[in-house]
């Protein structure tokens, strides 16, 4: 009896350990294809771009296999054509600045519109929430270009908005909205709004609204309930939504191209230009990598800032 009692748990433990090893092996095997795709598909092209940024541009596009730092130099600086003096590449920097500025503004606009929208949907009766979410998602099924043209139809000089204002006599000449930063902002906010609403809604749906009542019960005003109870608890959704809007905005191409025109170029358009008419692939590659760095730095700052607040908020 004692023998059985003492040997059985040991063999059971062995068995469990063996099963765990087996499980680990199976998991590694199942993960392998995904990992392979991620590694080759993500880092492969990136590696090519990195290499190209250190080469010399070919005359008709493409690259000549000759090492050069010129592209990286040109990202930030330029040599004056006549005096040969080195000065900051104002044009490039202003495009970068505009990209960052418009992306930040778009994120804020999406947050201001998206948060109440998500709150509204999350507080509807359970049965009708799907309907509201559908309304948010449907535009997403439409081609990006078509959605952008729809905005254009609204704001162009002969468009819906201006015709209406002129029609009711508020203005007599249409307001120029197309080909301005405003147009780019409206377009990007419209296009990326669902990306803000979805994650905020996801965390709001999990939010326990009896906590709001508890807040009111404990003398918190509406604003205090929002700031002290709702916001801290749906913050993961707000963070995710902000990242999901900010990142694609930085690299946006179609919307600034259609609504902003040539004057209001953003980084995405400028990069495309280098691979097209500019015939400067190394510069395009270097700019693309710069964009990547901007995104990463911005994300690190953002996540750090949010994390610090977390520590402070929860003492």
């Amino acid at each position: 009896m004692t023998d059985i009692a003492s040997t059985r748990p040991t063999s059971m433990r062995d068995l469990a350990a063996a099963r765990k090893r087996e499980e680990r092996r199976t998991r590694a095997f199942l993960l392998a294809p995904a990992m392979a795709i991620l590694i080759f598909a993500a880092s492969g092209p990136l590696l090519i771009v990195l290499v190209y940024s250190f080469l010399t541009p070919g005359d008709y596009g493409g690259v000549v296999w000759e090492f050069s730092l010129k592209a990286w130099f040109n990202v930030f600086a330029e040599r004056d054509f006549f005096t040969e003096e080195i000065e900051l590449a104002d044009a490039h920097l202003s495009i970068m600045w505009r990209s960052i500025k418009l992306s930040l503004m778009t994120t804020v606009i999406c947050l201001i519109i998206g948060f109440p929208t998500a709150y509204f949907i999350a507080t509807r009766p359970r049965g009708t929430r799907d309907f509201w979410m559908l309304l948010v998602i449907i535009p997403f099924w439409t081609n990006l270009l078509i959605r952008t043209f729809a905005i254009m139809e609204l704001i162009r000089n002969e468009g819906t908005f201006n015709s209406f204002l002129v029609g009711i006599g508020v203005i007599d000449t249409p307001i120029q909205m197309m080909f301005t930063e405003f147009a780019v902002l409206v377009g990007m906010a419209y296009v990326y709004l669902p990306l803000m609403i979805l994650p905020i809604y996801a965390s709001m749906e999990r939010f326990d609204f009896s906590l709001v009542e508890a807040g009111y019960d404990l003398y918190a005003t509406r604003f205090q309930v929002l700031r002290r109870i709702i916001l801290p608890l749906v913050k993961p959704g707000v963070v995710a939504g902000s990242i999901l809007v900010f990142v694609p905005c930085l690299g946006a191409y179609v919307t600034p191209r259609v609504l902003g025109g040539g004057k209001n170029m953003m980084l995405g358009n400028f990069i495309e230009l280098q691979f097209g008419q500019g015939r400067n692939w190394p510069l395009g590659a270097a700019l693309a990598l710069t964009l990547l760095v901007i995104v990463m730095v911005a994300l690190i700052f953002y996540v750090r800032a949010v994390g610090r607040e977390e520590v402070r908020g929860h003492g």
């Binding site: 326990d208 009896s210 906590l211 807040g215 019960d217 109870i229 929860h314």
Partner: peptide, 27 residues
């Protein structure tokens, strides 16, 4: 509700999950 000198112990307690015990009580 926030003006009434009345407090509630909720059936589900509704404690604030992002606060400590002391912060909940002091809220």
């Amino acid at each position: 509700p926030y003006e009434r000198p009345v407090n509630t112990v909720f059936q589900s307690y509704a404690l604030f999950p992002h606060m400590t015990v002391a912060q909940n009580i002091g809220f």
